[in-house]
Structure formats: C-alpha cells, structure tokens
C-alpha cells in the first residue's frame, strides 16, 4: 500500500505494491512509450510487464528485489511525440442481428438510429491501448462518448469468438469464446489470436484499427 518516494517528488510516478511480486506504476498518457523504454532496460529482476489503462504492472521474478536502477528508468525522459509506428488493420464486421444482439438497445440508449450507431462506430480510427482479459483481446481507445455503454450487470456465460463489443469507454473484440460482460454489437471472422502463429496476437498496443461494415 505504501507509496514510495523517489527523490524527485515533483515528477515522481505513483508506485504501489501489488503483492510482493508486483509493482504498479502510474504512467498516464505515456504508458506505451514508458513500456517500450522499460523493455529496452531489460532488467533481469523483472519477469513481465503488463500495460493497461494509464499504468504498467511490473512483475518481479520470484524472490527478486526491485531493480536498483528502476527509479532512474521511471524518471528518464521519454522520446518526444512518437511517430505513429503501429500497423493499420481494417477489420470487416457484420453488425447487429444474432452477431450483435445488444446493438439495437445500445443505439436506442444513445438516441441514435441503428445505422447511425454503426456509422459512428465504423468512422473512428481506433488505437489499441493494451491487450488483456483474454489472450489477444484489444482495448480500443477513442470510442465516441455517445457510444459508451456500461457493462452488463451479469456477464453472459458464453460470448462467441470474434464478437465486437462495447465496454465502458472502450470497444474491443473477443478473440475466443467464453464468458463476458461487454455489450455485443457485431462479429468478425478475423483471427485475433493464434498461439501457433509467429505473432500470436493480430493487434499490438499502439496499432490502429478501423472497422468496415459488411
């Protein structure tokens, strides 16, 4: 629970222990740039790094202490505005019907015709903020505020693979069938995750995504 001082209070990132093997660092809008910078440090004490909403979880190897140079690395200046290096993906989606059982309700809640909701959803060039929840599940940032929707109070037991969904301020795609609480608006045939592929996740943090209605 303790916040750790870092010697530079003005710029000190917020650290928090998460168990004895995890430290969560608040990284704000620079999360992906900080993630890349920390990856380049290659700290032997760190087993994994999980970027998420404005924070990174550093997972320590068993029995390892914090890397002595971590403080410095967290304060190191980041390269200025990074050019958009992410790949652009166009993903074909069948909106509505059995593929998107929540679309009409979401459109009504947003005060939009179904076609308008789809047009607005498909008009955005989204950025992959991070992957989580399931292997290869992208949290896509820049969903228009009018399309935001709360998750279901009780999750569905089985969401089909490829379901395109809205959860809070994000839109995302379920790579595999399983339980899920997001609102389903469509479905894609794109293979979001294949463990046997050279690059198992189709989308990487920083990539851009545009949905193309079928």
């Amino acid at each position: 629970m303790a916040k750790h001082g870092t010697g530079q209070p003005s710029a000190a990132p917020d650290w928090r222990w998460v168990g004895e093997r995890g430290v969560r660092v608040a990284t704000g809008a620079a999360t992906l740039a900080r993630y890349d910078a920390l990856m380049a440090c290659n700290f032997p004490e760190i087993e994994d790094m999980i970027p998420a909403d404005d924070s990174i979880l550093l997972v320590l190897r068993r029995g390892a202490a914090l890397p002595p140079a971590l403080c410095e690395a967290l304060h190191a200046p980041l390269p200025g505005v990074v050019a958009c290096g992410g790949a652009l993906h166009e993903i074909a989606v069948a909106y509505g019907g059995v593929a998107g059982p929540d679309l009409s309700v979401l459109a009504r809640q947003a005060g939009l015709a179904v076609d308008d909701y789809v047009d607005r959803h498909a008009a955005v060039l989204y950025t992959v903020a991070f992957l989580g929840f399931q292997p290869g599940f992208p949290y896509l940032r820049d969903l228009p505020a009018a399309l935001h929707a709360r998750r279901r109070a009780s999750p569905r037991l089985r969401v089909p693979a490829g379901s395109v969904a809205v959860g809070g301020a994000y839109t995302g795609i379920y790579p595999a069938a399983g339980p899920g609480g997001w609102r389903l608006i469509g479905r894609t045939d794109a293979a979001l995750f294949d463990a046997a592929r050279e690059a198992p996740a189709l989308l990487r943090p920083g990539d851009r995504v545009r949905f193309v209605p079928k």
């Binding site: 998460v18 093997r21 995890g22 969560r24 970027p51 990174i56 979880l57 997972v59 989580g132 929840f133």
Partner: peptide
C-alpha cells in the same frame, strides 16, 4: 463501481 483496467497477478 468500475475502476480503470489494470494489470493483476494470480492471487489478487
């Protein structure tokens, strides 16, 4: 109710 999504470890 809902927090920003964040990294979690087994045991959380």
């Amino acid at each position: 109710t809902e927090l920003p999504s964040q990294g979690v470890l087994p045991g959380a």
